[in-house]
Simulated assay, not measured.
Amino acid sequence: METVSLPHLPDYPLHICLFKDVNNAPFLRQQLLEGNTDFEYAFLDASILLSRNQVLAACFRAINDLLQDRLKSRNVHSEIVFSLSPNNNISESFRRFGVAETSRHILAVKVGGVQSQIEQHLKGSVEGNLVPLTDEQFAELRDESRLRKVYKIGATGNEAEAFVIGSMALKGS
């Protein structure tokens, strides 16, 4: 688990875990659908994520929207999922970026809380292998064709990161 403190938002630490080869995605999805408060995380399908910066940009936008009382979804964690989308369709955002029954690689993000408790809960709840939160790991896990289709880009290397983050930032403006 990695804890990240975003510039300008030191009171909202992000606790992030990247899991590979997850076996219980249907269970995790069901917990979210039932509104189980023990599972109040942003559970993301890691195969559709380009980079660590993309995830941090989505978290920054979601926390900023929380602080400005502009959330379009239920809470800051669902807003992280929504913030990844290049468009304003909330249900499409969850379908594309949220954990699905078929998700094999999952990124879990928790805003705030006690790092040791969050890490213990995630390690006990997610049946998968914890891997480092690096761009190299994202490159290994991602579905290139799906990512290109969602963001309508030709390549998914470093040159695509600015376009992806820009499309996330500009939606709704």
Score class of each variant (00 low, 15 high):
G166I: 08
L170E: 06
I153P: 09
R104G: 10
R96I: 08
E144D: 14
L66R: 06
E2I: 11
R96P: 00
M1T: 13
E101S: 15
L44E: 05
N129C: 11
T3Q: 13
I63L: 05
P10D: 02
Q120H: 14
T134F: 09
N88A: 13
G157F: 07
V55A: 09
A162S: 15
R70T: 00
K171S: 04
S173A: 11
S173V: 10
R61P: 00
L71M: 04
L33V: 13
V81R: 00
L141G: 03
R148S: 01
L49S: 03
T156C: 13
R148A: 09
S85I: 02
N53E: 15
F19A: 11
I80D: 00
D38H: 12
D65Y: 08
S85F: 04
I80K: 02
R148H: 04
R146Y: 00
F43P: 00
G172L: 07
T3K: 13
R95V: 08
R74M: 11
V111Y: 05
E34A: 14
H121T: 03
S85V: 03
G98D: 04
Q117W: 04
T102C: 10
R29D: 02
G154M: 07
F138V: 03
N64I: 01
K152T: 12
L130H: 12
S167I: 00
S145K: 13
G124F: 10
S167H: 08
L170G: 01
R146I: 01
C59M: 08
R95F: 12
A58G: 10
Q54C: 05
E119F: 13
T156H: 05
L49K: 05
I63Y: 06
A62Q: 02
A155H: 14
S103G: 08
R148Y: 01
T37K: 15
V126T: 08
E79R: 10
K152N: 14
G157C: 08
E144V: 15
L141K: 06
N53K: 15
R74K: 15
S78N: 13
S73A: 14
S145H: 12
I48C: 09
V164R: 06
R61W: 01
L14A: 06
I63V: 15
S116R: 11
F39L: 06
G112A: 07
R148G: 01
S103E: 03
Y41S: 06
I63W: 04
S93K: 09
L14N: 05
N36L: 11
A57F: 05
S85K: 08
I118R: 02
Q120W: 10
L107W: 04
D69C: 02
V22T: 09
A155M: 12
Q54A: 08
K20R: 15
K20N: 14
R52G: 02
T3A: 07
E101D: 15
L147W: 04
Q54H: 11
E2M: 09
N64H: 06
V109A: 08
K20L: 06
N89S: 15
A57P: 04
F94S: 07
L141S: 06
P13V: 05
G98T: 04
K72Q: 14
I165A: 06
A25I: 03
R146D: 01
D38F: 14
N87C: 14
H105R: 05
